[in-house]
Amino acid sequence: MIVQARQLGKQVASPGGTLTILAGIDLAIAAGESVAIVGVSGSGKSTLLGLLAGLDLPTSGAVHLAGAALNDLDEDGRAAMRARRVGFVFQSFQLLPGLTALENVMLPLELAGIAQPAEQAGARLAEVGLAERLHHYPRQLSGGEQQRVAIARAFACGPKILFADEPTGNLDQQTGAQIIELLFRLNRDYATTLVLVTHDPAIAEHCDRLLTLAAGRITGERMRDRA
């Protein structure tokens, strides 16, 4: 299992008392699998994604990611693990505005200490169809193009696992469809495990497995019907 969560819980303090966002999550994801987490707004999807990726720590339970117990690592340890094994695609793209498309894609390569980052980054951008846009800044790119850069960045280091949080949330339907097509194609090509949060059932249908979240708990699990 590349991702394993046991009795995962997250609580936060709020003016009205302690708020439980997630409780009793047990989950195992096999290498190469693609999993969609669906649910209404506020069901805890993004929080779960953040915990699985080690962007935040649970208040109870434990997460094992690619063989490492995230609870046992400090923030720098988790960052080092992300640099080598994990890729991210965010709803709001999250490109660094001061860097060109190429430099944005180079960033994780450099952080992981991979040689010739510029060549590699150029190749990734070519894969997402942006070979002509290497030296453009994010503000000079359309939303769809920015998300392509983000996808190129996510796959730059050849991650074992990719986390995507509403990757089409800020895009129109047509562009969104193209992005999803691109994401799944690359996922196949790189044999990456994919964990994807969405509220769009059509996107969820692309995944091997569907987890439904409601009020912080897993309320349903369904394998995609394979034709």
Binding site: E75, D76, V86, L107
Partner: peptide, 15 residues
């Protein structure tokens, strides 16, 4: 915001 993003991409404290 940028520091948070860098961290999620795997940058350590030092970097």
């Amino acid at each position: 915001q940028e520091a948070a993003l860098l961290r999620s991409l795997g940058a350590g404290r030092r970097a």
